[in-house]
């Protein structure tokens, strides 16, 4: 299972391509692209958003489902999806707690 990720142009926030071509701030809301063709479609949407000044640095990453939630496979992407492990009060992990 792949998802498309990027950083938002204006503030650099890590985002994933969600449903309805929206860029979402939580990996659990990302749209899953399964299979070569679907991933190609995701790439096309990402590249278009990059051209449209919405995001930068688009790439695909692998996820798995754990307890009904989408979770990145690689540690790098886990940290990117949460925030610095050294600062639990910063990044998305902090917003998740305060929400």
């Amino acid at each position: 299972m792949q998802v498309i990720t990027a950083n938002r142009l204006l503030d650099g926030e890590v985002v994933w391509l969600g449903l309805n071509d929206e860029w979402v701030e939580s990996v659990s809301d990302a749209r899953v692209f399964d299979g070569k063709e679907a991933v190609a479609e995701g790439w096309a949407l990402g590249t278009a958003a990059e051209k449209d000044q919405k995001v930068v640095s688009v790439y695909e990453m692998a996820v798995i489902e754990e307890d009904g939630q989408l979770v990145p496979v690689r540690l790098r992407e886990k940290i990117r999806a949460a925030g610095p492990t050294t600062h639990p009060e910063l990044g998305k992990q902090a917003q998740a707690v305060s929400a």
């Binding site: 950083n7 503030d11 650099g12 890590v14 051209k51 790098r76 940290i79």
Partner: peptide, 26 residues
């Protein structure tokens, strides 16, 4: 921000001014 420069055009300019894109943010 106005779309007059693409990221490919802008990246070397921002790097010359010390602005990187890192894991979580700029």
């Amino acid at each position: 921000m106005a779309g007059e420069l693409s990221e490919d055009e802008f990246k070397p300019l921002r790097l010359m001014n010390g602005l990187y894109l890192q894991l979580h943010a700029y």
